[in-house]
Amino acid sequence: MKYLSKDVSLRLDVDRCTGCKMCTVVCPHGVFAVENQKARILDRDACMECGACALNCPVAAIAVNSGVGCAEAIINGLLTGQETCCGGDTCCCAPKAS
């Protein structure tokens, strides 16, 4: 399943990339591929902006405005000016187990 991807903020600086493949390891949606020691964005459409690739890239070649794709959090953000997942302690996604 894919979601609205027009505004996806994922950016890759190929010049910095050392081909360590960490991005292909952490991405749960197979967004990256590494060929000839360089990463490339294989499936931008599938990016959910979780930020795992950017945080784990040792040479900071990846940038993404990461966050949680949760309408409740975004609506809370519009109302209060602060995006919290369903308000502080209660997280809409807590029942997921992994």
Binding site: Y3, L4, D7, C86, C92, C93
Partner: peptide, 17 residues
């Protein structure tokens, strides 16, 4: 329900909201 899924991006949800 976007908050319970495994594939929605914040930029997409922001646009949709």
């Amino acid at each position: 329900f976007t908050g319970s899924t495994t594939f929605t991006s914040p930029s997409g949800v922001r646009r949709e909201v």
